[in-house]
């Protein structure tokens, strides 16, 4: 082999070696940076999760103490008054008992709202589709946002285990809450589509403010996106986020439709 050829071969090896070194360095650096961000993100997530749990408990305590217990005390007082009232005035007694019944019904509604926030029982009773439809209605009523719902009938969606349905419901709940809080628009869409790979895709789209989406931990001030991603991951799925300032946001959670226990 001539010296020119061996020099060419040496140069080729050098080129390939340098290219491999650049790629390897990039790969290792990316792994280290990503892992550090991931750990930091989860530490922040755990911290935020604990404070969110505390907030949730405080909210339940406040609702029970400030509202339910006050009503119970008032009911007790009114019942005592009815009991102490001399017999004879049947009309007045009936009137007072009617008012008490209305109070008890109101109390029931209030307690149902608390229970529903803690766990959406509609999922157990009627399944994912009615629960999501109900959620869209709740958001419309509470925040004045028109939610265009595009969900195929229940029989078109393959059997969704309760755990997965609950995860999708919570993602939709958080996603719509984010629309209400941050998008600045009064219209959003909620879409559930079974994919060809036997997965369910839940999509929430708004054309509102949007944001610069970054995987850097500092950009995750709240729990929203991380908790949605975490929930999707629990169901062996993933969360995709498209967003740009001024152009709206699209969230898509994709989870396997048939699944046993959530890991």
């Amino acid at each position: 082999m001539s010296s020119g050829n061996s020099e060419t071969i040496w140069n080729l090896y050098l080129t390939l070696g340098l290219a491999a070194a650049v790629i390897l360095f990039a790969l290792i650096s990316a792994l280290v940076i990503y892992q550090r961000r991931f750990v930091k993100l989860h530490r922040t997530y755990s911290k935020n999760l604990l404070s969110a749990q505390e907030e949730e408990r405080a909210w339940v305590a406040r609702e029970v103490h400030d509202d339910a217990l006050q009503r119970v005390a008032m009911l007790a007082h009114e019942l005592h008054e009815v009991a102490d009232e001399p017999p004879g005035n049947v009309d007045r007694q009936r009137q007072r008992i009617g008012a008490i019944v209305t109070e008890v019904e109101d109390l029931g509604v209030m307690l149902r709202r608390v229970a529903h926030r803690l766990h959406p029982s509609l999922i157990d009773q009627a399944g994912l589709v009615p629960a999501l439809e109900g959620l869209a209605g709740d958001v419309s009523r509470a925040h004045g946002i028109q939610v265009d719902v595009e969900i195929p009938p229940s029989n078109a969606i393959p059997g969704v285990p309760r755990d997965v349905a609950l995860i999708l419901y919570r993602i939709a709940q958080e996603g719509l809450r984010n629309v209400a809080r941050h998008s600045g628009v009064k219209r959003a869409s909620l879409r559930v589509v079974p994919t060809q790979d036997n997965e369910l895709s839940l999509e929430i789209v708004d054309r509102g403010r949007g944001f610069v989406h970054d995987d850097h931990p500092k950009s995750h001030k709240g729990l929203g996106l991380v908790s949605m991603a975490e929930r999707a991951r629990l169901a062996d799925g993933r969360l995709e986020v498209w967003s740009e300032p001024g152009k709206g946001t699209r969230l898509r959670a994709i989870v396997p439709a048939h699944q046993g226990e959530v890991s």
Partner: peptide
């Protein structure tokens, strides 16, 4: 183009 461009996804 997508309605909203992916500026980072799959978190």
């Amino acid at each position: 183009q997508e309605t909203a461009r992916p500026s980072g996804t799959s978190i």
